[in-house]
Amino acid sequence: MNDSSVTLDSADAPAIAVNEPIISIDDLSFSYDLGKTNTLRNISLEIPAGKVTAFIGPSGCGKSTLLRCLNRMNDLVDTAKVTTGKISILGQDINAPDVEAIELRKHIGMVFQKYNPFPKSIYENVAYGLRVQGINSKSVLDQAVEESLQKSALWSEVKDRLNTSALGLSGGQQQRLCIARTIAVKPQIVLMDEPCSALDPIATARIEELIAELQQDFTIVIVTHNMQQATRVSDRTAFFYLGELIEYDETSTIFGNPKVKQTEDYVSGRFG
C-alpha cells in the first residue's frame, strides 16, 4: 500500500485519498422504536480515509449504535429507523432504497465486542466471507486465508492447525481470528466495537499493535471505553454524550485541550 491513497482491491468504488472523508454523516437522528424517542440526535461528522477514528463516551451515549448504523447492522432490529439525516459512504447514501445491506457489508467489515468465531475450523472461519460470495477455488481461498492470518499476526501461531476448531484458541487469538476473518474479504472500512473489552492486558496490547498495522490498509472506526486505548491507537476522536456528538477533533486535541467542558470532565475521569 502506498501512502497517498487507500486502494481497495475488491471495490468497484473509487479510491479515496488519505484524509479525504470516506464516511460523511449529516444531521443523523436514529431511533430504535420507530421514531418515538431518538437514540442518536442530529449527528454530523466526517471520518477520514486511512485513519483510525475512535468513538468514546459513557455507556448508553450511542457510540455503538452509531457504529452499527454504518454497516446497517441495526436492520436486524425491526423497529429501528433513521429519522433524519443521512450517512454517505464513498459518496453513496447507504440508506437509499436501492442499496443492499449485504453488498454494503462486503465493503464494511465489523469486529465485535465479544470474540465470536464460528464453531468451524480456523481455515473455514477465515474463508467464510469469501465462500458466501461464491468463491470456492481452493487456491484463491488458501492464499486469502494465509494473507489474512499473516496480516492479523496469527499465521505463525496457527499455521499448523488450520483445520482444528477455532474454539480451541485462546481469547486473544480468537479475537485476532475474527479480525482476520473480517479483512479476508478486503473491506475498505473496518468497524471495531470495543474489540478488547473481553481481553486481558497482554492480548489487548497485541490487538492494539495490530490496529496500528492495519491502519495502512484500512480505514478503521473503533468504539472504546478505554480512553488510554483511544489515545494510543486513534488519530481522531469523537466524544458522545446522551446520543449527541459533543466534540470531534484530533485525538491529541480531545485529550490535551478539549474545547467543551463536558469533554474535559469525561477525559479527565470526573464522570463516566
Binding site: G109, F112, N116, K120, V132, T182, V185
Partner: peptide, 25 residues
C-alpha cells in the same frame, strides 16, 4: 446471536447465514 451478527457483518445473506452457520451449529 453473535454467530448471526458475525455472518451478516461479513456480507452473508440471511439464507446463507441459516444454511452455513446456524443449521450446522
Amino acid at each position: 446471536r453473535a454467530y448471526t451478527e458475525a455472518s451478516l457483518a461479513l456480507g452473508a445473506s440471511k439464507l446463507q447465514t441459516v444454511t452455513r452457520v446456524i443449521v450446522p451449529t
